[in-house]
Write a protein that binds this DNA or RNA. Structure first.
Length: 841
RNA sequence: GCCGGGGUGGUGAAACGGUAGACACAGGGGACUUAAAAUCCCUUGGGAGUAACCUCCCGUGCGGGUUCGAAUCCCGCCCCCGGCACCA
């Protein structure tokens, strides 16, 4: 008699997700075709930091970042923009190489495997990626242009090979850029970094320091990121002051002084022999400078060292040279130093002062030499106390005078004392006055110093793009002609690095032996490869132009799509990738290849996902493995949960049980919409409709600001209202939920969209719902009634009620009158539609 | 030391200077079930009072301040996270 019950139409994420991923691929839903790239209507370049394809696969942190950026891209797409959302692989570099070594595999075999696995996972999480425009930095088609980039900088005078003290990681057996040294440790492997003097290729980023700093103010970037770059660039105003040898320049026989190298400005500045240049932010205190300190590596050390002191000086220098950066830069150790025997003349006092060397002065900052002012610098004070050097006072603060004893360095403000004609000037006035006075004597000038150094880009490793330079005995360093690019990285089975300071490629004679492009004579290829951060410093320029093979980026396409509209990524790259990308863009702009100089109009740093309040790590055993979760709940639920955890820009604490909330919500949404025939066609309930419009308004406002967690909460709240007390949903009440959930849960949204009878992808048009501001307003409002700031009652009043009406209603509340009894009403504060505060005594 | 960002229930978190704890998780109670799972409903900051509808007191790291009113603004501390750090 009864028909078999039809199989209940339940939410099965794995089925619908696979179905829609196939559909997207088949229909090319996420691809921006070449003609569209050339002529977009409303282009929106939605960029996220491309991953490094590890063997472990995508981790939750990756998925969090990609999901958050994907939500952003999908939202803009639903608003009718042409969204270009590419992804690729940053697959060169030491990390991959080390892993290959560990596994006994070759990176050329390993990387494609990892890339394939990552691709599978990236598709599975439902990213709106344009797979037709992807990059893999290890392919010759890509690194050909990385090499091209090197040549442009070389031709532009921004790439230079020079010998300088560089950071050497004894474990990775390669040099590192300053940005890759974190607190004296290798960013990659955490080993203590040593200093070596090897000839390296440098990019002249320090020339751009002022612009890189100034432009920051014009960028719509996360504050934290801007601050990190600001700190890193490290502008400080001060003066260069010159202290001449007390014995006269060059008087000491055999002194092989090379002059002064300025660390911060590229080292091109020379100086008179025997004159020490110092950088100081306190030129006002020069009358209190009672000795000089040179860094142990300073080129003038030999010049000043007397025969009597030579043994001691040499011993100190060789100890310093052997100390790694961690030990060297430790701030809590007792200061050490050695007197060279030489003296300089203080240009202010005319008196000779001794020249010391000490490792608390760093060759890499300023000029590598300081004037020591013990009275007004904490470090110099400590040094003077230790070695019994005089500590005169030249600044007197409030309540101090020229003779107030110094028990510690006075670094505050005040007036000059013991400074001949400048006594009585305020510190700030004295800085300028004294520097001008010294400048008149040729002893100094005001200047600005930056701590940003040139970018060391050569690596003595195998897994990177060979630097396209050839060394010819006759012609010297010769760039490889652009039409001979790429210089292909050969497959070398023995790619293990060693301590020699040269790349494994230097063992492959058949590769490095070549002929000079200029004279045709015997020549040798550069065997160093370039830094991975060079690969990633320009990848966003390549994405839209991957269809172009005769240029790194097509001018027309680039003009249409760049700079990048939205870039979302981790703040760990604030001073690495993001700074390098800005520099490369600025350099390409100056060299005439780009018409903009900042690559990323808007950048947002996402937060960090932690587990149990701690960073996820293998050693803590709190790593969340994504695949089983996606298996069980589907990508949509996983994405939704990650975005629901907390504010996207602050991260969140992942708890396994928490996924039940978003999962239940999606099931409820499914159950509400899917019996499509049962949905009532009646007009929406007026109260529900008002809530709907308010929800649309809120989500429309919050989504572009990455307010994901509160948007999701609003959607949940709305669905709760639709279903309140088990009520039946009407079609007009739920239809708009589908596009609103779509950025978070694209597969589910497509399925519901189709089941509601729509044709084509929900993302193929401007399907974001609109709202009527008039409908966002409730007729009645809840007004809190306070007596002396404490809530005693709440009133339901018509919107826009007058103060008198509100007061009358409040007086009718027993709980209000109770508190007003026997008191005098002194003041009434009325905030319409919000609150009534009765102040009584 | 300097520069950012934080500190709110058992937990993740909400809150234009205007009813602190939205939305969830976990917990408690109930419905359905032979039972469980799933689902649904109610409840849940702490304390006190009341037969009950309810009402009161306390409460946003600590101490002050501004204000009719402060998680929010100001001053001084403490703690956590991130960046820089012998930077002259």
């Amino acid at each position: 008699m009864n028909h078999p019950e039809p199989a209940p139409d339940l939410y099965h994420p794995s089925e619908i997700e696979a179905k829609w991923q196939e559909t997207w691929d088949r229909e090319g839903t996420n691809v921006v075709p070449t003609d569209r790239l050339r002529a977009p209507d409303r282009p929106f370049y939605n960029l996220m930091m491309f991953p490094y394809p590890s063997a472990e696969g995508l981790h939750v942190g990756n998925i969090y970042a990609f999901a958050g950026a994907d939500v952003h891209g999908r939202f803009h797409r639903l608003q009718g923009k042409d969204v270009f959302e590419p992804i690729g692989f940053d697959a060169f570099g030491i990390h991959s190489e080390n892993f290959a070594l560990k596994m006994g595999l070759h990176p050329m075999d390993l990387i494609p495997r990892n890339v394939a696995n990552f691709t599978r996972q990236l598709r599975r999480i439902g990213g709106m990626f344009d797979w037709k425009h992807t990059v893999d930095t290890t392919t010759p088609e890509y690194y050909r242009w990385t090499q091209w980039l090197f040549l442009q900088l070389y031709k532009g005078g921004l790439a230079e090979r020079k010998e300088a003290p560089v950071n050497w990681c004894p474990s990775c057996m390669t040099v590192l850029a300053n940005e890759q040294v974190q607190g004296g440790h290798c960013e990659r492997c955490d080993s203590a970094v040593e200093q070596r003097r090897i000839a390296q290729w440098f990019f002249g980023i320090s020339k751009f320091a002022p612009r890189l700093l100034e432009n920051l103010a014009t960028l719509d970037w996360s504050d934290t990121t801007r601050k990190a770059q600001e700190n890193w660039i490290g502008r400080s105003e001060g003066a260069i002051l010159r202290f001449a040898d007390a014995n006269g320049a060059g008087s000491r026989a055999g002194a092989a002084a090379e002059g002064v190298t300025r660390g911060g400005s590229g080292g091109e500045a020379g100086a008179e022999i025997g004159v020490v240049e110092v950088f100081t932010t306190r030129p006002d205190t020069i009358f209190g400078a009672t000795w000089m300190v040179l860094a142990p590596e300073h080129p003038l050390v030999d010049h000043f060292t007397t025969d009597e002191q030579r043994a001691e000086v040499d011993a100190y220098r060789s100890t310093a040279a052997k100390t790694d950066l961690v030990a060297r830069k430790k701030t809590d150790k007792t200061k050490t130093g050695v007197f060279t025997g030489g003296h300089c003349v203080n240009p202010a006092t005319g008196r000779p002062i001794p020249v010391w060397i000490s490792d608390y002065v760093l060759m890499e900052y300023g000029t590598g030499a300081i004037m020591a002012v013990p009275g007004h610098d904490e470090r110099d004070f400590e040094f003077a106390t230790l070695f019994g050097l005089p500590i005169p006072r030249v600044v007197a603060g409030e309540g101090q005078d020229a003779d107030t004893p110094l028990t510690e360095a006075w670094t505050g403000s005040g007036r000059m004392v013991n400074s001949a004609p400048f006594d009585g000037l305020e510190v700030d006035e004295a800085k300028r006055a004294i520097t001008e006075w010294l400048a008149g004597k040729g002893a100094g000038e005001l200047t600005v110093n930056y701590r940003l150094h040139d970018w060391c880009i050569s690596r003595q490793r195998y897994w990177g793009p060979p630097i396209p330079i050839v060394y010819c005995d006759g012609c010297g360093a010769v760039p490889v002609p652009e039409d001979q690019l790429p210089v292909v990285l050969p497959r070398v089975e023995d790619f293990k690095p060693d301590d020699s300071g040269v790349s494994p490629l230097a063992r492959v004679a058949e590769w490095y032996e070549t002929t000079c492009p200029d004279c045709g004579g015997d020549a040798r290829r550069e065997t160093d490869v370039s830094d991975t951060f060079l690969d990633s410093a320009w990848y966003f320029l390549r994405y839209p132009s991957t269809d172009v093979d005769d240029a790194p980026f097509d001018p027309g396409i680039t003009k249409a799509w760049l700079p990048v509209d939205s870039y979302i990524g981790g703040n760990e790259h604030a001073v690495l990738h993001l700074l390098y990308s800005r520099f490369i863009t600025m350099a390409l702009h100056d060299l005439g290849h780009l018409d903009f100089e900042e690559p990323f109009t808007r950048f947002r740093a996402h937060g960090l996902i932690v587990k149990d309040g701690a960073k996820m790590s293998k050693s803590k055993g709190n790593v969340v493995v994504p695949d089983p979760i996606i298996e069980e709940y589907g990508a949509d639920t996983f994405r939704l949960y990650l975005m629901f955890l907390g504010p996207f820009e602050e991260g969140g604490d992942y708890r396994d049980a928490g996924i039940a909330g978003p999962w239940g919500f999606l099931k409820r949404l499914w159950d509400t919409v899917v019996p499509v025939e049962e949905l009532s066609g009646e007009a929406p309930d007026p109260a529900v409709e008002r809530k709907l419009h308010r929800t649309i308004a809120q989500v429309t406002r919050q989504l572009p600001e990455l307010g994901y967690n509160t948007s999701i909460a609003a959607l949940m709240e709305y669905l709760n209202a639709v279903r309140a007390g088990g009520r039946q949903a009407r079609r007009g009440e739920v239809e708009a939920l589908v596009p609103m959930i779509a950025p978070f849960c694209p597969h589910l949204a497509e399925e519901l969209w189709a089941r509601l009878g729509n044709r084509g992808s929900i993302f193929s048009g401007a399907n974001w719902p609109g709202f009527d501001p008039a409908l966002c307003i409730e007729d009645t409002v809840t007004v809190a009634v306070q007596v002396n700031g404490k809530v005693r009652a709440t009133l339901e009043l018509p919107r826009g009620s007058s103060e008198d009406d509100a007061l009358a209603a409040a007086r009718a509340e027993e709980n209000v009158t109770r508190f007003l009894e026997g008191a005098e009403l002194r003041r009434i504060i009325y905030v319409q539609d919000r609150l009534l505060n009765l102040v009584a005594t």
